[in-house]
């Protein structure tokens, strides 16, 4: 399988990248290439030009700043895996990264690409929804910040406008009493999720004060399960609350039948994973209290 021909550009600044994208509506950004190149090899994507982000400085890195964990769009998944900061303070993100694709793919795949690709099977979008993350985009009319909940508009589509480039992902900094978990059920390593659930909790004096619950690959986009969040908030995190949240998450899922299983099955998996993820998130949040 050989990709079709294209023009290749590797600008060294965002303005130039943005200009190239605007000048060529058939152009696409190239980050880690691990979603785009496979699609091109099957000629499911035939961009006339690729604008490679690799030479633009400042697009990768992980740091805490201004109450956020800031992750550059070009940060590789493996960098998250190796980051002590992420591993020790952002368990939901750490969990998610570990189950994306396989270790070799993670060396090149980028966090920004995972989010921007907006494949309903991508794992980061749900984690970002649960975290209440926001995305920084840079484009012809400057920089703007987009809430994760506004970002994903459909399968493989986002609210990014022509010429806009995702530059950074911001996750609210982890504090006392916060904890999260990602539970993914996959058929084998390297597979996209049958279903996966991200849960991020904030405890306050033993009560759940804030909750984010979001689902992967059971709908056209990652789904934020508001009712599941509501079932958790205000509760003590007991089994009854977890069951209610699990039920609500299953109801929020909107899967189809396919070779990964029937819609009923996937909903059942969402229910189970929500319970497990919430239990694990709670335990971690308590530990961090």
């Amino acid at each position: 399988m050989i990709p079709p021909s294209f023009d290749y550009h590797a600008p060294d600044n965002l303005e130039e990248a943005s200009r190239l994208l605007l000048a060529n509506p058939e152009a696409k950004l190239l980050a880690g290439g691990h979603s785009l190149i496979p699609m091109m090899r099957f000629r499911l994507a035939e961009p006339a030009a690729l604008v490679d982000l690799r030479k633009i400085p400042g697009l990768s890195g992980i740091r805490e700043e201004g109450g956020s964990l800031c992750i550059g769009a070009m940060t590789r998944e493996s960098e998250l895996e190796k980051s002590d900061l992420v591993q020790s303070r952002y368990p939901l993100l750490a969990d998610t990264t570990r189950v994306i694709a396989d270790p070799v793919v993670r060396n090149l795949a980028t966090v920004g690409g995972n989010v921007a690709h907006a494949d309903p099977g991508n794992d980061h979008p749900a984690a970002m929804l649960a975290y209440r993350a926001s995305f920084v985009a840079c484009g012809p009319s400057g920089e703007r910040t987009i809430a994760a909940s506004d970002f994903f508009t459909g399968p493989f589509s986002t609210c990014l406008e022509a010429g806009e480039i995702l530059t950074e992902i911001r996750i609210p900094a982890s504090g006392a009493g916060s904890g999260g978990a990602y539970q993914k059920f996959e058929r084998k390593v390297g597979d996209y999720a049958v279903a996966a659930v991200a849960v991020q909790l904030q405890l306050d004096g033993g009560q759940v004060a804030g909750a984010g619950v979001a689902l992967t690959n059971v709908g056209l986009t990652a789904i934020q399960a508001g009712a599941a969040e509501a079932a958790l908030v205000g509760s003590d995190g007991g089994d009854a609350a977890l069951d209610a949240a699990a039920e609500a998450a299953a109801a929020a899922a909107d899967p189809g039948d396919d070779h990964r299983g029937s819609a009923d099955y996937k909903r059942a998996v969402v229910r189970v994973l929500t319970h497990r993820a919430a239990a694990s998130a709670l335990a971690r949040a308590r530990e961090a209290s």
Binding site: R187, A246, G261, S262, D264, Y265, A268, R271, H275
Partner: peptide
């Protein structure tokens, strides 16, 4: 014996768990 297939059987026999 994919998970989906096994789960179907569990479900049919009332043995699927929700947690």
């Amino acid at each position: 014996m994919t998970p989906a297939r096994v789960w179907d059987v569990l479900n049919e026999h009332g043995a699927a768990a929700t947690r």
